[in-house]
């Protein structure tokens, strides 16, 4: 390729890629710089490790990291684990399958904050769930279900909101596997679980990786669900960052922000590698 041609291609790409690089680059640059003491909005600016050293030393920081990783990883794994059987079930059209598929994907159309409040209504003290439990005789009286300390409600909501996305990606991948290939595996003695492990998962690993990574990043940085229905004894990284910012501690907030980005990157790489290694096999 000649230099002129390379420059021509670069020029054509620049309106798209250039904008992305500028916007992402600017955000990353500001966050990283701020975490090292630059762009200090309320004091003297200058290079310093102190924000990182103090930040990492705080128990609340480590706890937020641990909690966000728990929410991110659990939500990603559960969403994909639930989406797979549904994708396989809906692989072949049957009467009503379009309707079921549409209903399953409906949460994609519901905004996160709306979903959180809907869920809150369902599990609240006088909500439908408590009423039903009392009516069925399972509960003697209504119980406090919201803001549970293990974040079960929050993870349920994350899965409810994200599973359709995984389903969307996995359905296409699963549908691309021919019936004959699956039948051949069965004919050669593979039961349902073995067919999944040896044929379906390796052939859909790219969709699986994409689902895991995108859901993980979203859930890791969750703010809306956490502040609405999350446990009150835990803070997510996003919540922690906002907490710092609200107190004018921009550099500390930047430390949390960079941590969030680094965890997103590291987690994504880890999920991609682990899923590839777990379902080893060369791709077409």
């Amino acid at each position: 390729m000649t230099l002129g041609r390379a420059a021509y291609i670069l020029m054509l790409l620049s309106p798209g890629i250039g904008l992305i690089v500028v916007f992402i680059g600017a955000v990353v640059y500001i966050a990283v710089a701020q975490s090292f003491g630059y762009y200090n909005l309320i004091g003297e600016s200058g290079f310093s490790w102190s924000f990182w050293i103090e930040g990492i030393d705080r128990k609340s920081y480590l706890r937020a990291v641990r909690y966000s990783l728990y929410v991110g990883l659990t939500s990603a794994f559960l969403s994909v684990a639930l989406a797979y059987p549904l994708a396989l079930w809906l692989r072949k059209p049957f009467p009503g399958s379009m309707t079921i598929s549409a209903i399953l994907k409906a949460p994609l159309l519901v905004h996160g904050i709306v979903a959180a409040f809907l869920f809150l209504n369902v599990i609240s003290y006088h909500g439908i769930l408590n009423q039903m439990m009392v009516w069925l005789g399972i509960f003697d009286e209504p119980r406090r279900l919201q803001n549970d300390e293990h974040a079960i409600g929050l993870i349920f909501l994350q899965v409810w909101k994200n599973m359709p996305f995984a389903l969307l990606l996995l359905t296409g991948a699963v549908q691309a596997i021919s019936d004959d290939v699956l039948n051949a595996a069965q004919d050669l003695g593979a039961g349902a679980w073995q067919r999944f492990l040896t044929v379906i998962a390796p052939l859909t690993v790219s969709a699986m990786q994409a689902s895991l990574i995108i859901i993980f990043i979203g859930a890791l940085a969750d703010f809306t669900f956490q502040t609405t229905i999350g446990p009150t004894n835990e803070r997510s990284l996003a919540q922690y960052m906002t907490f710092m910012k609200d107190r004018g501690r921009w550099n500390d907030a930047a430390v949390v922000g960079v941590t969030l980005m680094a965890l997103s990157l590291a987690g994504s790489v880890l999920l991609a590698v682990v899923s590839r290694l777990a379902f080893r096999g060369r791709r077409k």
């Binding site: 290939v181 039948n183 051949a184 069965q186 050669l188 390796p202 060369r282």
Partner: peptide
């Protein structure tokens, strides 16, 4: 008896080879 438990082996019209395996 399900296919995986039968003492039969089927050669498919489309070959049905596993594309990710050697």
């Amino acid at each position: 008896v399900p296919p995986e438990a039968r003492d039969t082996a089927l050669c498919f019209q489309s070959y049905a080879l596993f594309p990710h395996l050697s």
